[in-house]
Nucleic acid binder design. Sequence first.
DNA 1: AATGAATGAGCTTTCATTCAT
DNA 2: TATGAATGAAAGCTCATTCAT
Lengths: 201, 201, 201, 201
Amino acid sequence: MAESIQDQIAQLRREHILTAAIDVIAERGFQKTTVKQIAQRAGVADGTIYNYFKNKDDILLAIIAQLTEAEAREMHFAEARQVDFTNFLQEYIAHRMNEIDENFRALKVVLSETFVNAELGRQVFEQIYDPTFAIAEKYFEALKADGALPADTDSKIAVRLFASPLLGLMLLRLMGDPHVDANWDAYTAAMVAFMKQIYEQ
Amino acid sequence: MAESIQDQIAQLRREHILTAAIDVIAERGFQKTTVKQIAQRAGVADGTIYNYFKNKDDILLAIIAQLTEAEAREMHFAEARQVDFTNFLQEYIAHRMNEIDENFRALKVVLSETFVNAELGRQVFEQIYDPTFAIAEKYFEALKADGALPADTDSKIAVRLFASPLLGLMLLRLMGDPHVDANWDAYTAAMVAFMKQIYEQ
Amino acid sequence: MAESIQDQIAQLRREHILTAAIDVIAERGFQKTTVKQIAQRAGVADGTIYNYFKNKDDILLAIIAQLTEAEAREMHFAEARQVDFTNFLQEYIAHRMNEIDENFRALKVVLSETFVNAELGRQVFEQIYDPTFAIAEKYFEALKADGALPADTDSKIAVRLFASPLLGLMLLRLMGDPHVDANWDAYTAAMVAFMKQIYEQ
Amino acid sequence: MAESIQDQIAQLRREHILTAAIDVIAERGFQKTTVKQIAQRAGVADGTIYNYFKNKDDILLAIIAQLTEAEAREMHFAEARQVDFTNFLQEYIAHRMNEIDENFRALKVVLSETFVNAELGRQVFEQIYDPTFAIAEKYFEALKADGALPADTDSKIAVRLFASPLLGLMLLRLMGDPHVDANWDAYTAAMVAFMKQIYEQ
DNA sequence: AATGAATGAGCTTTCATTCAT
DNA sequence: TATGAATGAAAGCTCATTCAT
């Protein structure tokens, strides 16, 4: 807490560089983006990058850390309103799609790199993927116990099917579908209706 | 049509190299895969690659072309059974998930690169994405005209929501979810049930 | 033995680059010599160096290997004429000083780097230093048994004192003493006389 | 002479940094040692170094200057006891080997760099090497005139042969020979005996 | 048509030096 | 005077591409 002014300035500088990095990496991909390009976007010299990040890979890890924090907030949000399923569905989907919107470029960076970088994939799995699905599965098991879901439901499958429409829409946007990109709010409303139709009959 | 033996041999050799390329690129990503690695996997010399492909990017374009053909077959399949919606849904989803399964590595290669390569994204859009969604939108318009869908349905949105669960599941697998990877057939059945629940009430 | 022409050409090319490397490194030191400078001296492109050496350090190891071979020949030479001590001294010193003369630049490179590179020092010790002194110590022990040396002689010390004048002269030349450099043959003769005076009274 | 307190403090600080520099450079070599490492060892900031030394090379020159002073003291010591050759030999060798022991790290630093740095080599020659050998040569000429040495002795060669055993032993220690390092006192005694045997028959 | 050695542009990273505080 | 963040030149190394064989 008792951070010196120096530390706060340093922290701001680090965030500034990280934002610039996400920007430029989202445009060209991590591998094709050079440290020089990140430095130019951030308005600093090449070497300065290395005062704030150990190496180029460390920048990627920092972007993941940022997403991990966002996902942790998301999970807290979900847990805080598990009481009423109808409202939960509506609020949760809207909230999540808003999160996707706000972290869009970071998501793009991490996701595309996760596909092709096994070590990074492992980190994303451990830090984001697994915890999220574990909690969701527990929630689905509770719904089964309450009789809200058929007893023979496979929670692992059910939870992934539950997540799939939102992930699919995100994928369309990541691929650059202009209609999804331009009408994200309309898709949010449609997605809520779509999900209600499935889970609230 | 009257291809010489020479041309056929050349064609086979090209396909052999392309298969090797998909293999090794799926493991490490396009940017991190070297031409030398592709050549080694194909069992040819580095220079030989350049007798069959203009340059490294051209290999990526050839992988896209392969997916474009698969997608064209997929669309023919879909058009051939538009008569009965119930059967269509079942067959179409099963067919498409099987296609995903079979072209998995090529999909992974192209998708991860599409995210970050604007020029490639444009090609994927023109050759695969747009034609597929255009046909689907036309089909949804016909369903609207038939009264099978509400008159105020936004076809563009509806078609993307329709596609989203399958794409989302594909994304989970691409990200390396071991449960999805190991139980693709179970997910196919579950997805069919999931979609029937939505579209056949 | 059954080396292909290709392999022989490659071997020659490697030796050509190594010679160029010794030349330029002897002038400026290993650390200050750039790979680009070695390539220019050898008349090849930078990247070509890496077709023949794993990395810059590997060049240094190759220079050591060359000295190790020279030292092995030296030890064979010494063992082959242990019979007559008077002749041995004369021939051995002359032979060794000639070897120093011929491998001078390689010695300079390896020695200066050995001082400051612990890992390299270990290699030089294991491959050159220890074997040589081990054999010499055994020889001195034999001389003690024969009564040619006092029974209370410490062989380890004696052998290092025996080697010291020659090593000292080498050091003077390595430091660039122009008189030693210009009159190496005269020093050879003087060294023989000097050593005879000590060991043949 | 009338140095202010400020100047004396500055002088002490400079010596403190120089000692730290010798320490760390002796471990890793001049080229591989960074200014940051020297600063850390000295417990000051990087920039502070440049208040006491013009640049990195200047640190090396200061180390030479320190050795030059030690060598000047050595030469005074030698000149002061030229009267009795038997005692001179004993005292001089013991004294010099003690000096080597005490300035060991500085010697290592300067010597290894002298091999490969022409400009530094020139300085070492002018400041240490030449004056020392010039005086020694004059002394040997005097011995010739006295008839203590044969009239046909080449003083330049004789003086270098005289120095060679001690230099050779120093070289062995610089190269890291553990036996020489651990038994420097025993080697001192052995060296005295060795030299007496040569020069006092 | 196949080969693979040679090329050199361009990458990541280091580090001596400067200078505002 | 002391600091240490910022700088950017220059290093080692990789690899897509070419071309003589």
